[in-house]
Each structure stands twice: as structure tokens, then as C-alpha cells.
Design a protein around this nucleic acid. Structure first.
Lengths: 341, 341
DNA sequence: CTGTTAGCGCGTTCAT
DNA sequence: ATGAACGCGCTAACAG
């Protein structure tokens, strides 16, 4: 006895069979029209298209996915959405995916590799066409899934390491190094460093290490650093600078892990009557618009977040199969001289 | 002759049948264990779980979706990711969905109802359990799909209107109105208004109208307004204030559509040597952290973005079926007195 | 250029 | 507490 139609769906949601019937063609022909694939005679296509319009047909992607063992989803795993960096990356991804059939599915890992692993596995159950992650460090389990899967993989932000498939980003180590060189050249000698408590922000750590290296090479070292006991924020930057200066008034420049915190540093200087650049240099990272809109533009490094996201998504779409050799794309960075250091 | 196994999948991606075979149970029993549904004897469950672990089994959600005519996806359609407001909403949604089986799928509409309609239709092909959108204005076609669909719907940010199912947000009209009342009470009389070119930002328009109403009631009106010929940004705010003041130096307060632009206004004042609050009041909207971390905290209205997203997602999960009557949740707003107006 | 056939992997239904 | 059978809606493969 025929089972009754699944009760959970709308009573008369049309299927491809309905479209085919109305258009007087076979299902597969209708399917080909929907997917714009294969050769279809113009009159046939038009009949199918008008049947689709007449019925208000919406394809069922679950069925399509199942039949074709693939989907048009792109899994995107980001550490955070509070840090504007990642929405920027996401915008880039979105821009590349607009006008394609692909859709991003977002997961947020809170900078935790174990959460990343968990979300990755759950995303893989949708048979994504590609996976985008931040950074090159993943759990061994995650790394294994990434390597064995039949999907493209892009690892974003960082390029200092060995990617699974594609890496798009910049060398944060080098950015930190160049920061040090730049500030030394500008005459600064007594360096302070502000940090936050996101210990798994590998990029921030890499920049820190790069900076230390350049200081060492110049016979210098960090005089002081303070790790704010909370996540990055403008207020964190402001409070951290106050603490640093109260113990080390001799500092002539303080480097922040990002522009948000650096802005906080500037606000502290405004509050405390410290002349920025002359009395104290302030240096950030990211090159956010707001920092550049200040009367004294923030001295910082421009990271190309949008470009990273866009490039990665474009690259992933180039070929459905993972090529034999890995790709590393360096989007580079620019030092913004600014007026604060 | 049996067709060969789909060539696109990994050579030996285990299926539920493999798990069942290894555990010595039927597929449906294994399925019940995977979904933690129905009564299963403890020893049976353990055997299945260890088979899952041994094989590294990952469920195929496309198949599950197809069989059950439903998915664990939640479609989220946001106007923008550049405006920090929406990442904040997204964080709220994410927070509510963590520890549930649901996953958000993000689409970005660029404040364009037609793009919203297009993305909505494409999302519906995944049979989402719920759809989240911004605002109450959609195309007639989109509205029809939303009303007829077998999924929950939440419309966020605004509550001035008639929702399809659930609305979570605040009254922007009232926020604009209260802004006017507040500033009048503080003694301001000569009002200027800065705008941006996102004409379909209905919330900004509603605040503008509310403000005008309160001015009218006090026998006042806007002396000047300027629409910046580009999207909202800090620089847009800075440039807009400069233009406003060059033509209307008599203004004693300028209201901005958001904190980003208001910060730009403050930067212009810093640059031009204008004493904020005494010579010119500056008022924003959103209550971003950065504005509150300034030496003179920005006077603004705190919108509760995170709460809106979280509340909406939680509400959507309460029942899979759309209840007979609509729900409107007012998350309210707070006036932050600040030091700039 | 179009059609026939045969599943994709899972969950619902109903039976035991 | 567990299982058998069927089909969800679509597309790959091959034939014509």
C-alpha cells in the first residue's frame, strides 16, 4: 500500500516531476533546465521555464545533493565575529560567491581548535564543495578530515606553514618584524607591548615574535608588556596602556596587537594629556577605517582582509578537484605611516 | 547490472549501513542512536557508538533532510556585514544555536529587497527550519514565501509593523523621538542631521522621522541636513559634519545615523578645534564600545544587537510549528547620556 | 537533444 | 526495544 506523502512538507509544494509533467518533458530534461546544464533545445527550455514559473517551483537541494553526492555549500569556519577582521573576510568571500551557485555556511570557533574540529565535522555532513578556515593550526583529527576529504580547502590569514590545499594571507611574523624595523628607524628605542588574553590568536603571537626578533637584531628588547585579562577591545587597549605607563613611564612607543586596542591607547593619551608620537608612539595592526579617519591617523599595518576572503573563494571555485600541488597566495601588507608613531 | 558507486564520493565513506553492519543491528537502530531518538537499550547504543567511532562515520545530512523533509539549517539574511550591528546580531544567533543541532546559513542582501528575495528563494531550497531576516519590509514575493512556508520566521531589529511570525527588536521611530526629546531637554535648539546614502536602511529612516516628530512637537525643526554620497563610515561622518558646519555654523547639535559616523563627527571637531558639547553636541546611535571608551564617551542610544539575535534564535527553537498568533518582542533601548551631547 | 533506469543515504511508517 | 520496506526528490549513466 502506498505510504502517504510526507506530512511535514507543504501540501502542494511542487516537485520536479510536477514541472516535467506540466511542460510535457521528462524529469531529467526539466532538471537540466534548472541546472542550466547539458544541451537543451530553446523551445523545450522555455516550456520548462514557464512551468517552473507557473508552479513557483523551488528545487530541493537536499535531494540534489544526495543524488549528486555534492553540494553548493562552502563551509566557513572563523574564530570570531566580534573582531571586525573576520566580517571583512566574510564580505570578501561573499563578494566572490555572489553570482555563483555557492552559499557560505558560517561557523564560529571562538579561537578554540576543538570547537573548530567539532563544527568542521558537523559541516562535513552537508558534503560541502569547499571548506574555508582561519590559520594553519588545527587539531590532528581536523587535519586528517581536511586532507582526506573530497573537497577544496582554503586556510586563510596566515601563510607561515604548510597548508592542506590553498593558503591565502600574509606573514604575520614578517609584519611584526617590519613593525620593529620601522619604529627603530623612526627613532623609537624603549618599546612596550600590549596584549590580550586570546592565547590561541596565533597571528597575534606571530607578530609578537617577529617584533621581538627585529628588536633583538638591533640590540634592543621589550622593556615592558602587559597582557590584559580579557579579550581585545578599545577599552582593553586604554586600560592596558595606563597600566604599562604607570610602571614604565620611560616607554617611548607601545605596540598593540590590533587597531581597536591601539585606539584605546590613543584615548588614554588624550585623557592623560600625553602627546602622541612626540611623547609616546602608538602602533596598531589592521588599518581599520576608523583609525585612518582620526585627526592624527593611526600608524599601523594594513592587512587585506577583504582581499584574502575574496581571493580564497575565487581560487576555490577554479577547480572542483584538489590539484596535486598546494597553493600559497601572499596578499602582503602595507605599513601605514600615519601620525601616531 | 548494478551501477557503480557514485564516483564523486570518497572511496570508502562509511554510511549508516556500514555502521549498522559493524554493530550488528539494523540501519534504523543505528539511525536512532545517531539522532538520540527513541528507546535504545544501553548495550546496543554502545555497540553502535563504537562502530561509529571505529569507522569515523559522518551522517549525510542531505539524505537525512530528504527523508525527513526538514533540515537543521537556519537561514539568516542580513543587509550587510560591514555595519558591526549585524555581526553582533549574528553572534547572538550563534550563541543561541551553539549546543543545538542547528546551523546558520548566512546571506547578505546589501539592503536590497530584490537581492533579499533572490537569496531567500535559494535558501528555501535547503528546507530550512527557520528563516531570520532584518526588518519588516520585503518584496511581495518574499512575503508570500515567508507566509506560506512551513518554517518559522523571525524578523529582526524593528518592531514597527506587522511581522510574519516573530519580530524581535526595538522601535526605531521611538528611538528617534526620544533622541529629540532628550536633546531638547538638555537645551539644544538648533539641530542638524547627517545621513548616508543607504536609502533602504529603513531603521535609519524611522529614527529620522521620529526625531522630526519630536522637534515639531517642540516647535522646532531641523535647520540643516546633509546626505553623504556614500555608505556609512567614520570618514563619511567627519566629512558630513564639516559640510554641515560650513553652511550652518549656527548649529548647536548634530545627530548622526550611527556611532561610526558620530565618531567621525567628533574627529572633525577635534581637528577643527570645536569643543564638543559646549560648542556643538554630537549624538549617535548603537552604543558601540569604541564610542564609550573615548575620554568623552559618546552620547548615543544603546541598541541591543546581541540580545536581539539571541532572543530571536531562542524563540525560533521553542516550537517547530508556527503558532497561530504572532509574537513581538521589544528588546528596548537605553539612552546613554555620555559626554558629547 | 531527450528519455529510461536505478539508485543516492536516510527516516517514516507500521509491525513485531 | 528493534526491524522491514518503502520512497523522499533528484541526478548519473547510458541509450537512443
Amino acid at each position: 500500500m502506498p505510504r502517504k506523502r510526507n506530512t511535514r512538507r507543504s501540501p502542494d509544494m511542487p516537485t520536479l516531476a510536477d514541472v516535467a509533467r506540466l511542460a510535457g518533458v521528462s524529469e531529467i530534461t526539466a532538471s537540466r533546465v534548472v541546472r542550466a546544464q547539458g544541451p537543451i533545445a530553446d523551445p523545450t527550455r522555455l516550456r520548462v521555464l514557464s512551468a517552473i514559473a507557473a508552479l513557483g517551483y523551488i528545487p530541493n537541494r537536499a535531494a540534489g545533493s544526495l543524488a549528486s553526492a555534492g553540494s553548493t555549500l562552502m563551509s566557513v569556519l572563523l574564530p570570531s565575529l566580534s573582531n571586525i577582521v573576520f566580517p571583512d573576510v566574510l564580505r570578501g568571500i561573499h563578494t566572490a560567491l555572489t553570482q555563483t551557485a555557492f552559499q557560505p555556511v558560517i561557523g564560529v570557533t571562538d579561537y578554540d581548535p576543538l570547537i573548530e574540529e567539532r563544527i568542521l565535522i558537523s559541516f562535513l555532513s552537508w558534503q560541502p564543495a569547499a571548506v574555508i578556515l582561519a590559520g594553519l593550526h588545527h587539531t590532528p583529527v581536523a587535519r586528517r578530515y581536511l586532507e582526506q576529504g573530497r573537497f577544496r580547502v582554503a586556510e586563510l590569514m596566515d601563510i607561515d606553514g604548510d597548508p592542506v590545499d590553498i593558503a591565502v594571507g600574509m606573514s604575520h611574523r614578517q609584519a611584526g618584524y617590519e613593525t620593529g624595523r620601522h619604529l627603530i628607524q623612526r627613532g623609537y628605542r624603549r618599546f612596550g607591548y600590549a596584549r590580550h588574553n586570546i592565547l590561541t590568536d596565533d597571528r597575534a603571537s606571530a607578530r609578537y615574535e617577529g617584533l621581538c626578533t627585529s628588536l633583538q637584531e638591533a640590540g634592543l628588547s621589550l622593556i615592558a608588556e602587559h597582557r590584559y585579562p580579557g579579550p581585545s577591545s578599545t577599552k582593553a587597549g586604554r586600560d592596558t596602556l595606563e597600566i604599562l605607563l604607570s610602571a614604565h613611564s620611560e616607554l617611548d612607543v607601545v605596540i598593540f596587537p590590533n587597531d581597536d586596542m591601539a585606539m584605546g591607547g590613543i584615548f588614554h593619551c588624550m585623557y592623560a594629556g600625553i602627546t602622541v608620537r612626540e611623547q609616546l608612539g602608538i602602533f596598531g595592526f589592521n588599518g581599520l577605517d576608523i583609525g585612518q579617519a582620526m585627526p592624527m591617523p593611526l600608524s599601523t599595518i594594513l592587512s587585506k582582509r577583504f582581499l584574502i576572503g575574496k581571493t580564497a573563494a575565487e581560487k576555490l571555485l577554479e577547480s572542483r578537484e584538489r590539484p596535486p600541488e598546494k597553493t600559497i597566495i601572499n596578499t602582503g601588507f602595507d605599513i601605514i605611516e600615519g601620525a601616531t608613531a
